[in-house]
Simulated scan of single mutants.
Amino acid sequence: MRLGRTRIGFFGVVGTRQVVAAALALVTVTFFLPAASIPAQPMGVGEEEPLGELPLDRAAQTMASKDKGRAVRLLEKDGTVTDLTMEEYLWGVVAAEMPASFEEEALKAQACAARTYTVICQGASKHPEADICADSTCCQAYIARDAAEARWGLNAGSYSDKIQRAVEGTDGLGILYEGEPIQALFFSSAAGQTVDAVEVWGNSVDYLKSVDSPEGEEVPNYHSQVVLTAQQVKDAVLAAYPGADLSGDPGSWFGTPVCAQGETVSSITVGGVTLTGGQVRSLFSLRSATFTVDWDGEQFTFSVTGYGHGVGMSQYGANAMAKEGSDFREILTWYYTGTEVTDLW
């Protein structure tokens, strides 16, 4: 029997007829291969064939900022008027009004309070040419981003981002009482309790009641003193209240203070004239109306605790609550009695 010739091929040792058959089959497959399966041009190294556009997942998209759609006209300290978005403005208010080192939930509470206060001001502005001003004694403090970042130095990046998160994290949220935005007043630090609005301004406001506030000795300058001579006290009192009688012993000029909440002075007589704690605070440039006054025979010493008018949200109290685990909603509804945190727009 004659053996056929063999070849060494890709698949090993095969017969001549098998090689021919395989070759014909390969030609046939190649000839009829669909054109779509052959790339028009070679792909580059590492490239993958494009999958085309995927359907958009609406739930995963970032919602447009509500604050960016609201405008604020700001009266700067130099008298110029600047047009800002609500988001830009609130960033500058939070940066100016609250230390950026505070807890993020406290910063969020500040952003909500500032947003709510701004809405109230826009509805009844004190400034015909603007919605609100940058003077904290009139409206709210404000600082431009570049100025704030220059002040923060090496912390500029982290602090700037932190405040941005606080503003964005409360986008469009405000504080409402019975469906209406509130006068979201705030101040620096309390002496254990905030003060009822009626004790400071004579008007009772349902959501501005006295509540406990947890800050204390960790607050910078929590305790302060103002020392004045008898002549300095006499000059200041008579300039503002000429009917006061300061002719006798200086030790008898001040009566026993009446305190409403904690140690905050509600009223006190000075030279026979009854003044509120706030009036005495203003008269002698005290940091708060939580004070005692002593005469040692040569000078008066006012010993003061806390800083600010004492009504509404304590900023250092908010930070203390945040450190204890409270979120911004819990902080706000604690300081503003009977309110809710919800959308303003």
Rank of each mutant, 00 (worst) to 15 (best):
Val280Trp: 00
Ser314Leu: 01
Cys259Val: 12
Val293Asp: 13
Ala236Trp: 07
Asp245Phe: 03
Gln261Met: 08
Phe328Gln: 08
Ala318Leu: 11
Gly317Phe: 05
Phe254His: 09
Ser213Tyr: 00
Val237Gln: 11
Val219Cys: 01
Pro214Asp: 10
Asn203Leu: 14
Arg287Gly: 00
Thr276Ala: 10
Gly271Lys: 06
Gly255Met: 04
Gly312Asn: 12
Cys259Asn: 10
Tyr222Ile: 08
Asp212Gly: 12
Gly255Leu: 03
Ser247Tyr: 07
Lys209Phe: 00
Lys234Gly: 09
Phe302Lys: 07
Ala260Arg: 09
Ala236Pro: 06
Gly277Glu: 05
Val311Trp: 01
Asp245Glu: 12
Gln232Glu: 15
Gly255Arg: 02
Arg287Leu: 00
Val233Leu: 11
Leu286Trp: 03
Ala197Arg: 04
Gln299Ala: 15
Gly271Thr: 06
Gly243Asp: 15
Ser252Thr: 15
Phe284Lys: 09
Glu215Leu: 03
Asp249Gln: 06
Gln279Leu: 09
Glu217Asp: 14
Ala289Trp: 01
Ser314Lys: 00
Val293Glu: 12
Leu208Trp: 02
Gly308Asn: 08
Gln231Ala: 14
Ala322Asn: 12
Glu298Lys: 12
Gly243Thr: 01
Phe300His: 12
Val195Asn: 08
Val198Phe: 09
Thr292Glu: 11
Arg329Cys: 13
Arg287Thr: 00
Gly248Pro: 01
Val198Pro: 03
Ser288Arg: 05
Ser288Asn: 05
Pro242Gly: 15
Val237Lys: 11
Asp327Phe: 13
Trp295Met: 09
Leu238Pro: 04
Val293Trp: 08
Ile268Trp: 00
Met321Pro: 03
Phe254Ile: 04
Ser314His: 00
Ala320Arg: 14
Glu217Arg: 05
Pro242Ser: 14
Asn203Glu: 14
Ile331Lys: 09
Gly308His: 09
Met313His: 09
Val195Ala: 03
Gln193Pro: 05
Gln231Glu: 15
Gly271Gln: 07
Ser267Thr: 15
Val205Leu: 14
Thr269Met: 01
Pro214Lys: 05
Asn203Pro: 05
Glu218Thr: 14
His309Leu: 05
Thr194Phe: 08
Phe300Trp: 08
Asn221Trp: 00
Gly243Met: 13
Gly278Arg: 10
Asp294Phe: 04
Phe291Val: 00
Val237Pro: 11
Gly272Val: 07
Thr269Arg: 06
Gly243Ala: 14
Glu330Tyr: 09
Val237Asn: 06
Val198Lys: 15
Gly310Arg: 03
Leu332Gly: 10
Glu324Thr: 02
Gly248Glu: 04
Arg329Tyr: 10
Gly278Cys: 05
Gln232Leu: 12
Thr301Gln: 02
Val258Trp: 02
